[in-house]
Amino acid sequence: MPTRRYDDSPGLGSLYARTVKATLRKAEYEPDLDGLTLELPRALVDQDHLTAYREVTGFAAGPALPVTYPHVLAFPLHLDLMSDPSFPYKPMGIVHLSNTITQLKPIPMHAELSISVHSTPERPHPKGTVFDILSAVSVDDEVVWTDSTSLLSRSAGTPTAHTDLLPDPSLEANALWDLRANLGRRYAAASGDRNPIHLWKLSAQAFGFPRQIAHGMWAKAAALASIQRTSGLPDAFTVRVDFRKPLLLPSRVLFAHRSNGTATDFALYNDDHSTTHLIGQLAPR
């Protein structure tokens, strides 16, 4: 499996230009079956950037990184992987289906991190082809955090293909969130994810949305920050979310969470509870 190593995180400006170019290219090549691994052996957290991330997601200050923050650090490597000529799918238009994070122990905010990213073989889906981008973060040569991001490349699909979905929990709302129109731009500034569907009404309409939509990883982070404030989070746990329906901005949404004994179920609904935007489950390790 070929490996590409970096002395510093790839610049997002050039990566977005490559992403657009990769989307426009013709698919005249075969996937690299050996895959490509990207590594950033030494990464330090910019504390101002971390503060901005906490503010937009709701995580309180503390000695450890928010559990979703390493995903932001790995995101430039995700873009680099998906815009590489060996990558078999056009990156623009890929749909984020789910995300699973496992924190094996809290990550100190001043730790030196090592980050690696690679993709898995494709598998069929009723609406196209699904693949995962896997990320891992190590501290002192010990893996302390992993992330699996499941993505859909739309095509004719396989109607009989199995889809792995979290069960829909029956939850009563704990909170009402009033989300402003600029939320996508605020999270983009803190995360680096400047996909145009999240930024402005006109740019979202160019991709078929009536107006801009919230980032899925913002929704996951905000949900976990809310659970942390009310119930606390364990030091070691796995948390998965499925992204069901786009969350349009501005909007009012209901957040619900409940412990079922061994795990915590949570969800985001629209304000009349008729549409599910996100379903999640957190289980201690």
Results as ranks from 00 to 15, higher is better:
Asp168Thr: 15
Leu81Met: 13
Leu183Met: 11
Thr129Ile: 06
Ala43Thr: 01
Tyr6Phe: 09
Pro124Ile: 13
Pro246Trp: 03
Asp178Ser: 14
Arg194Leu: 14
Thr120Ile: 02
Tyr89Phe: 10
Lys220Glu: 03
Ala61Tyr: 06
Ala27Thr: 04
His78Asp: 04
Met92Ala: 12
Arg285Asp: 13
Ser150Glu: 10
Pro169Gln: 12
Arg154Gly: 01
Arg194Thr: 10
Asn195His: 05
Ala204Asn: 03
Gly208Ser: 06
Asp178Met: 13
His257Asn: 11
Lys127Trp: 00
Ser231Tyr: 00
Ala225Asp: 01
Ser274Cys: 15
Ala188Tyr: 06
Leu65Lys: 12
Ser153His: 12
Gly11His: 04
Gln205Val: 01
Asp168Gly: 05
Phe209Ser: 07
His198Thr: 05
Ala256Asn: 05
Thr68Cys: 11
Thr230Lys: 03
Pro85Cys: 08
Tyr269Lys: 07
Ser116Ala: 08
Gly35Phe: 02
Glu28Leu: 11
Val137Leu: 06
Pro169Thr: 06
Asp147Phe: 08
Arg240Glu: 10
Thr37Glu: 10
His49Cys: 14
Ser191Asp: 04
Asp132Tyr: 00
Glu30Pro: 10
Arg185Thr: 15
Ser138Pro: 02
Ser226Ala: 15
Ala190Arg: 14
Pro159Leu: 13
Gln47Leu: 13
Tyr69Lys: 13
Gly58Phe: 01
His125Arg: 01
Leu254Phe: 03
Asp265Ser: 12
Asn260Ala: 13
Leu282Lys: 08
Gly128Arg: 01
Val253Ser: 04
Asp48Trp: 07
His273Met: 10
Asp141Leu: 07
Asp265Pro: 09
